[in-house]
Design a protein around this nucleic acid. Structure first.
Length: 861
RNA sequence: GCCGGGAUGGUGGAAUGGUAUACACGCGGGUCUCAAAAACCCGUGGGCUUUAAACCCUUGAGAGUUCGAGUCUCUCUCCCGGCACCA
């Protein structure tokens, strides 16, 4: 056999696989469907880096393993090429995004082919092609029809560099997720999806997901459920200059007709301790707008606070001003002041809070700064607190503030009339019932999750398929008229005027109303890239269907996705959006499942020299040159051997050579075995080989099932060492050991194992191809059955038993397997060991612990 | 601040409460060669500057549970990731 030449072998088999379509399951007739999905790659112009390859290889190994287990594995691939990132790059290199997309697509697909994954190449998707985004637009329309898409003027995140708005999820630490610019708050009219309608379902479904705890917790925190009460405070009638709110239904704490103000709290049990109210500057501004005559200085403060709000929120200094108005605490009728302060958020709850400085650190800090009353109403359960701290009215905190600290924990309610003696938090619901009875407040649940801001003022995305008619209002484009094709624009750059470049194209804008046929105008914004990727896995299974986005029966067969592998950075963005879309489609009776991903596995990150790979650092590794030098198989194995798949690793050139050596040795051994004339089916000493083989099968199988690829490879190396040693010694090795070896290695190094397997089976007729599929022209290793192991062969005739004295190992003795059950025998043998004798000499054995077949421990005084 | 995950040789890492350091990288020595590369062989946690045996120490620090702890419990230090004025 020829020496190992990866580039030759890899090209050869990649072509054969694609021609014979061995990775293309029949989606309608498949008996055991397995949807193996990896996260939609964004086709960056620089090409695929090793981080991508790491993720894809890990996912592919799992898919290949399942295929050899007898599943009809569907492993699709495509490109998420719409979006700001692609558009910005096109602008940078002075190309049109569509032109750049073509170049990137070609390059990315070439690279994807070179890494040797078992992709279904006949069902690719590119989000920027009309045959795909037609259905993205269709999806938008379904949401609109269901009342889940609406356009509204709201304070939104605006990126001054990308010149577009961003969803909450795309703002990290007040900065643009993409470019890192500090995000501004702007009041703009935008399209939203009502993801908040699904907050409860998104949350309550989490326990049934087979996802890592980390990702589940991240989603849980992002949804951020808080249970509590909405409580009404009457405003003192002296404040006659306050106008009542005209329109009802406003969820914010606008003044109600009966001159009251509402707050949300998770601690209604501390209501007796509420010594003042605080409203957000935004809410105060609304009051001003409807005619509130604020005292001098208050209006100025509000304006200033609002300006500061649009900047970065790094300044957490609490500021505020007394509004001049008082409210009545509904439970004790005390007159308490209303303040306007920057530490209250406008977008959460009612935009107003009741401040309980004794039991909330933020309120405490504020009260301390402005010398406001602090009133303890929860008795601390911590026994060693000074008695002075435990209860009583402590308004004079400024005189002795060391004595008073905030207590946020649980305890007994005190100084609270009827509630005294109740234990919190168990009695919170009791408190709420009490409040409801007296019509002071009612139970309320709030979520951190906001509606998904879906519109973008950019060019490179699917136009939002909506038409604004002066008579009929917003109307969806007729489904028969889809897609709304993205016009080819010369000047596609964003202008930053809050409008998409499409707004300059009269021929695009002017259209007819689908309802009344009168003149109307098209929406000119495009949708967020995250919408493209929120449903692509539906379409993969239905790329051959032209009449609809997907076929219900097809989806029933293939979805939810059996295994989804991707980066943890999408824990809240993509995964949450996809779950939302899947739930909506289920509710609209398009599909039969709510959760799109049964199992999600987050892989680790590949770094270079300890730092995240990035263009700006100049440490991005493109796999091409390594593949050219060592082959994709070597690189695949190297990446998987770095460490646990969930942990990622540091990319280093030196390790690759080691892995290349290993594969070369495997090739060499198989070649030698093949060319040796005397292939015997059994030799004198094959017992140890059988044991090693069966052990290896067991371990590798378990490891791959649990995505422990690094230890699977280590086990294979150990197995190689056994085979190699044997062969060196006897110059003979039955090919079955080699066959098993290449079968186990096949998911990791698909090309070389295919070549070796073909050689090993070429004139070996007694070997039947059990896993053989319908119309294959050759018996690919990748369609073979995964080796099974014989439990009996795992048993060795002799076992090693560690002998320890007081827990310290002093010797290891060999015992015949048949004798391990007799403790007496083992004990006696152990005591005969010279070294053990030495340690037992003159000591009294207090106790002997024997763990069968493993260890015997003598406890001495 | 809250939540989640970590810390093991020179390096990446391995270990259902039962022989810590598997597997590999690197390094050292050797074989082959005029020489080098490749390949192959041997060695490789520390005490320990000869070898072998024995002994002692060693899984971030300290305590505890246990016949026995890298693994379980508590306290602490440091690192990584997420959320963060969400009432």
């Amino acid at each position: 056999m020829k020496p190992y030449n990866p580039s030759e072998v890899e090209k050869k088999w990649q072509n054969v696989w694609e021609e014979t379509k061995i990775y293309s399951p029949n989606l309608d007739s498949a008996k055991k469907p397995f949807y193996n999905l990896m996260m939609f790659p964004y086709p960056s112009a620089e090409g695929m880096h090793v981080g991508n390859m790491y993720a894809f290889t890990g996912a592919d190994i799992y898919g290949r393993f399942q295929r050899m287990q007898g599943y009809d594995v569907f492993e699709p691939i495509g490109l998420d090429g719409f979006g700001i990132h692609s558009e910005n790059y096109a602008i940078k290199v002075g190309k049109h995004p569509a032109e750049q997309a073509k170049i990137s697509e070609e390059n990315f697909y070439r690279q994807l082919r070179s890494i040797g994954n078992s992709y279904e190449w006949t069902r690719t998707i590119e989000t920027y092609k009309p045959e795909y985004y037609k259905w993205t637009q269709w999806l938008f329309i379904q949401l609109f029809k269901a009342g889940l898409a609406y356009k509204k003027k709201a304070p939104v995140n605006f990126c001054p560099k990308d010149l577009t708005v961003l969803a909450d999820e795309q703002v990290i630490d007040g900065k643009c997720e993409r470019c890192g610019s500090v995000v501004e708050k702007r009041e703009l009219e935008q399209w939203f999806f009502k993801i908040t309608d699904y907050a409860e379902k998104l949350l309550s479904n989490i326990p049934e997901l087979d996802w890592s705890e980390k990702v589940k917790v991240a989603q849980k925190n992002w949804i951020g459920k808080s249970e509590g009460a909405r409580i009404r405070f009457v405003i003192l009638s002296e404040a006659k200059d306050l106008p009542a709110s005209q329109q009802g239904g406003d969820s914010s704490a606008m003044l109600q007709n009966d001159n009251s103000i509402e707050v949300f709290t998770t601690r209604p049990d501390t209501l007796f301790g509420a010594t003042f109210l605080v409203i957000s500057p935004e809410l105060a501004k609304k009051w001003l707008d409807v005619g509130w005559k604020a005292p001098t200085g208050v209006g100025k403060y509000i304006e200033e606070a609002l300006v500061k709000r649009t900047l970065i929120e790094e300044n957490t200094d609490k500021t505020g001003v007394f509004s001049g108005i008082y409210a009545i605490n509904p439970v004790n009728q005390e007159k308490i002041p209303i303040w306007v302060a920057n530490y209250v958020l406008a977008g959460y709850g009612t935009g107003a809070i009741m401040a309980v400085p004794a039991h909330d650190p933020r309120d405490f800090e504020f009260a301390k700064k402005f010398d406001l009353q602090v009133k303890t109403v929860i008795l601390s359960e911590t026994k060693d607190l000074p008695a002075s701290q435990q209860g009583g009215d402590s308004s004079a905190m400024s005189q002795n503030d060391k004595m008073i600290e905030v207590y946020v924990g649980e305890g007994e309610i005190i100084n609270s009339g009827d509630w005294n003696g109740w234990k919190t938090p168990e009695s919170i619901s009791k408190v709420i019932k009490w409040l409801e009875k007296k019509a002071i407040g009612k139970r309320e649940v709030n979520y951190h999750l906001r509606d998904w801001l879906i519109s973008r003022q950019r060019y490179w995305g699917p136009p939002i398929p909506m038409i604004d008619c002066p008579k009929c209002g917003w109307q969806p484009v007729a489904e028969a008229d889809l897609p709304v094709v993205l016009p080819e624009l010369e000047d596609f750059k964003p202008e930053g005027n809050g409008k998409s470049p499409l707004a300059n194209i009269d021929t695009f804008i002017n259209t007819k109303c689908p309802n009344c046929d009168g003149p109307a105008k098209r929406e000119t914004d495009v949708s967020d890239t995250f919408l493209d990727s929120a449903w692509y896995f539906f379409r993969y299974a239905c790329t051959d269907i032209e009449s609809s986005a997907f076929d219900r029966e097809r989806l029933k067969k293939w979805l939810p996705v059996n295994m989804y592998i991707g980066g943890a950075e999408h824990s809240v963005l993509h995964l949450l959006y996809s779950r939302f879309i899947a739930m909506v489609l289920a509710d609209l009776k398009f599909t039969d499942f709510e959760e799109p991903f049964k199992r999600f596995y987050a892989h680790g990150l590949i770094v270079k020299d300890g730092a995240k790979m990035s263009k700006s650092r100049g440490n991005v590794i493109i796999p091409d040159k390594y593949i050219a030098k060592f082959g994709a198989d070597t690189l695949r194995c190297y990446l998987m051997f770095l460490g646990p798949f969930s942990a990622g690793g540091d990319f280093r050139d030196t390790g690759i050579e080691g892995m290349n050596r290993f594969l070369k040795r495997v090739w060499k051994l198989c070649s030698a075995v093949l060319s040796s004339k005397y292939q015997v089916s059994s030799t004198e000493n094959t017992k140890e080989l059988d044991t090693a083989m069966n052990k290896t099968i067991k371990k590798v199988t378990e490891d791959i099932e649990n995505l422990r690829y690094n230890t699977a490879l280590a086990t294979l190396m150990e197995y190689y060492n056994v085979l190699s040693e044997f062969y060196t010694k006897y110059k003979i090795l039955d090919t079955k050991y080699c066959k098993t070896f290449v079968l186990l290695l096949a998911p990791f190094a698909p090309h070389m194992t295919e070549e070796l397997y073909q050689q090993l089976t070429i004139d070996n007729l007694q070997f039947t191809n059990k896993g053989k599929k319908d119309s294959q022209s050759f018996n690919s290793i990748h369609l073979e059955s995964w080796p099974s192991f014989d439990e009996k062969s795992l048993e060795e005739s002799e076992v090693n038993i560690a002998v320890s004295v007081n827990g310290k190992t002093r010797d290891v003795i060999k015992i015949e397997k048949s004798k391990v059950e007799s403790q007496k025998f083992v004990e006696q043998l152990a005591k005969e060991s010279e070294n053990v004798k030495k340690h037992l000499q003159g000591k009294k054995i207090l106790k002997t612990v024997y763990v069968q077949g493993k260890i015997i421990n003598f406890v001495i005084d």
